[in-house]
Amino acid sequence: MSALREKILNVASDLFQTRGINSTGVDTIVAVAGTTKMTLYKHFQTKENLILEVLKRHNQEFRDWLTEKLGQSSRTPDKKLQALFDYIEEWMAAPEFRGMPFLKASAEFPNEENPVHRLSTEQARQFRQYLGSLAQEAGASDPETLALQLSMLIEGAMLAEQMRRGSGAAKHAKKAARVLIEAALKR
């Protein structure tokens, strides 16, 4: 990947997270990146393509980070499921935390036919699927339901923390998750 393409992605990512996707024009992106529209469009044919690339990158980076965190511990699958919320809390406490891009993007592009909305929906589905695989490995009685419940807690906590830093939403979500996980793992 060229250094300029990388810079445009980084600038667009930061601006989309801090100002909003629809509020950030191509003129602003190229000005902050120190490039031209022609160069931006050489690397990303449309602003929509740039948005999609930013979303894909954030999703992959978060997934890689979480997988690495969960893999670092030699915990049993049920302990790994419990540890999930420790890592989510750590991520949300980081100064650079700005929420989950697919949540923001789906709100800014509510039309279900829009490619940005479709990708956001797919990323939310993949996240639930990831949680479902953790739940299944841990032996949850209904992994899909537990995954949906956990994703709702995580996404809700992220939105609450985005709206008010230091809200304590992650701690409350973790407490609720423990109850749900323990209930799902009872045999």
Rank of each mutant, 00 (worst) to 15 (best):
A3V: 12
L4W: 06
R5M: 01
A12I: 06
S13V: 00
L15K: 01
I21Y: 04
I21R: 00
V26R: 09
D27I: 01
T28H: 11
T28I: 13
V30H: 02
V30S: 05
A31M: 14
A31Q: 15
A31N: 10
G34M: 08
T35L: 03
K37M: 06
K37I: 00
M38R: 14
T39R: 12
L40W: 03
F44L: 09
K47P: 01
L50A: 10
V54G: 03
V54H: 04
R57G: 05
R57P: 03
H58T: 00
E61D: 15
R63V: 13
D64G: 05
D64W: 06
L66W: 00
L66E: 00
E68L: 10
K69V: 01
L70H: 00
G71T: 07
Q72L: 11
S74V: 02
S74A: 14
K79Y: 09
K79W: 06
K80H: 06
A83G: 10
A83Y: 07
F85E: 03
W91H: 14
P95D: 11
P95H: 04
R98W: 01
M100H: 14
M100S: 11
A107H: 13
A107K: 14
N111Q: 13
E113Y: 09
R125H: 12
Q126D: 14
Q129W: 13
L131K: 03
S133A: 11
S133Y: 07
L134G: 07
Q136L: 13
G139H: 00
A140D: 02
D142T: 11
P143F: 10
P143M: 10
E144V: 12
L146Y: 04
A147Q: 01
L148M: 11
L150V: 08
S151V: 07
E155G: 07
A157D: 03
M158S: 15
M158L: 13
L159M: 13
A160F: 09
A160V: 05
A160P: 02
E161A: 02
R164T: 09
K171E: 15
K171V: 14
K171W: 12
A173T: 09
A173D: 06
A183P: 06
A184F: 00
K186Y: 14
